[in-house]
Design a binder for these strands. Structure first.
Lengths: 334, 334
DNA sequence: CGGTATCAGGAAAGCGCTTACCTCAAGGTT
DNA sequence: AACCTTGAGGTAAGCGCTTTCCTGATACCG
């Protein structure tokens, strides 16, 4: 490893001068020294040690991102937005995959903290009142007291800035759509019961059901396609009278479509998130759109902007129903 | 920011002792001091400064990953494999999105170099003989001379370890399948012409065509769904006699399916990569499977294992044709 | 009881950089 | 000619940690 000292020696200058030239400091320097130093840099293939720089400057340049799973399209889209904004601000992004394990979340928060990142974005649903969730918020607070910034996406927090997708409203939209079409026996493929996202979307669905005087049959799955397929198979077997299904994300909706195909049933299906796959399945999926990329962009924007006031900022992102071909009116039997 | 010195002061010990206790060094320490220090750590919410640690220890712990685009399912799957292995080795993963810009690739290599990562995995196709490509290999070499390790996925390199998917063979598989079904007028939705992946897959297709005495009509797109759709629309208009299409990745194959739907044609379609979406579209896509997660795992394994010999290691990953419903035999017109 | 091995803990030297401060020489002022 | 600017570059003090070496106290030996 060539060091600054090597470069300086080779160019016959002090490390101070070398540093100033390399960093393009405002201090004036003779043209001759400048070329000598730059030549030495090239010859030695010198690359400054970022850790030493961090230490000396004690400024923070990277930002960390905590996501449940990058290969899940939901998070992939969000991550895309996060990266776009971070890159535009010249920030390095460190992505950490928690694999949905709360313990790993804690670990990573500390890791990012240790790496002196400028900000951390925590994306993805939290857990309904668990110890790990409490502990997480404590660590987040500890990070913030050191001057770090935190923004959460779709996670409740009363200390950090947050971007909140309209999960409850989206659930309502999905339910209202189905009920307005005349369906009364509606099944719900929900996500894990412990997640706030599941709870919120479900709440919206229940609100819609109540408004139409209908009831819902809920089964819980794990937000994956195969999980959704299995859950739908079971639901269809247990409740043969259902005429429509609401899945709490598109992956599970796709699974539901597949399940219906294998048992030869055709129920209306509404998904959630409007992921790219929604328009490519048959029938094209009616889905509640959440602008995922935008979610990521706004969160990163919040994380990189100094707090305006004292209280945390909260942005609400609306949901929108995208009607396609997987939902149709039910002609009332009576 | 609480520092080690703060902890030491509070516990009434030297920083040396505090450091040893916190890092669980082998040096023996009285139980009393240990509890005092640990208490101070907890009270002060002390998190060691990773940069200072790096500098003092000069050991490398993180690994960097360069991908074209995390939100592309192709890379998402690979990334998943990379992360799994890295995490199993206790390594922090830094994911860098190059957005397919060669300049950004160079930038990121240096950045990761500066951050003293232990290894860098470069995932994704390279460019056929461009200046940026040459420069990239030089920077990679520079990084390796400092003790860093490099592994590439699906990219040609004669200095670094590499994991190579059987792109040429996969292309052959796709072509052979179509020709064996009796198709002779076959269109190809290729990726960007400058990418080696495009060239390799195309070469396999051409080999199959030659073996069957057939010819191919090739159009280039950009590996995205919409790009594939547009290219297919054009291809169908220009060459009305085509009876089958090979797309060089599944995203474009999905686009091709959509294009065919809009102009009411039904050609056989074979995709490439066998991404999750392949089985959920209608008709379910016949595709050349590449075990993407495994690709990532093997690459990270290579990157984290000290080189065995002097020459770079190369792993070839075979491709496999998955037959579904999007391809069918053509009854020869004559 | 002097001498030595053993042990807990501290002092301090870096790791590779940045930067405030200092020095020295040349040119400008009156 | 004495004094002050100003410009160009160097000196050295950290940044927060790890780790080697050292110190002082205690225990063990004949």
């Amino acid at each position: 490893m060539a060091t600054l000292a090597d470069v300086a020696r080779r160019a016959g200058v002090s490390t101070a001068t070398a540093s100033r030239i390399i960093n393009g400091s405002s201090k004036p320097v003779t043209e001759e020294l400048r070329t000598r130093v730059l030549a030495a840099v090239a010859e030695l293939r010198y690359v400054p040690n970022a850790h030493a720089q961090m230490l000396a400057r004690s400024n923070r340049n990277a930002v960390g991102v905590l996501v449940h799973d990058v290969s899940d399209p939901y998070f992939a889209e969000i991550t895309r937005g996060l990266q776009r904004v971070a890159t535009a601000h010249g920030r390095l992004v460190i992505i950490c995959n928690t694999f949905r394990e709360p313990a790993r979340e804690l670990e990573y928060i500390d890791l990012l903290h240790a790496h002196q990142v400028a900000a951390i974005v925590v994306a993805g649903s939290g857990y309904l009142s668990s110890d790990a969730e409490t502990e997480l918020h404590e660590r987040m607070a500890a990070f913030e007291t050191t001057g770090g910034r935190i923004a959460v996406i779709g996670r409740h927090s009363h200390t950090s800035d947050a971007v909140l997708p309209a999960n409850e409203e989206g659930g309502f939209l999905a339910g209202d759509h189905l009920f307005a079409l005349g369906h009364t026996a509606v099944g719900v493929i929900a996500g894990p019961a412990a997640l706030t996202t599941t709870a919120d979307r479900l709440a919206g669905l229940h609100r819609a059901a109540a408004a139409h005087g209908a009831t819902l049959t809920v089964v819980h799955a794990d937000f994956t396609r195969d999980g959704g397929e299995a859950a739908t198979l079971k639901l269809l077997a247990d409740e043969p009278a259902l005429t429509a299904v609401a899945a709490l994300n598109d992956s599970m909706a796709v699974g539901a479509l597949s399940a219906m195909r294998t048992c030869g049933r055709t129920l209306s299906v509404v998904g959630f998130d409007d992921m790219p796959v929604a328009r490519d399945v048959t029938p094209a999926l009616t889905s509640v759109r959440l602008p995922l990329t935008e979610l990521g962009e706004r969160a990163m924007e919040l994380a990189l902007t100094p707090p305006t006031g004292s209280s945390p900022r909260v942005e609400h992102i609306p949901a929108e129903l995208i009607r396609r071909e997987s939902t149709w009116p039910l002609s009332r039997p009576t």
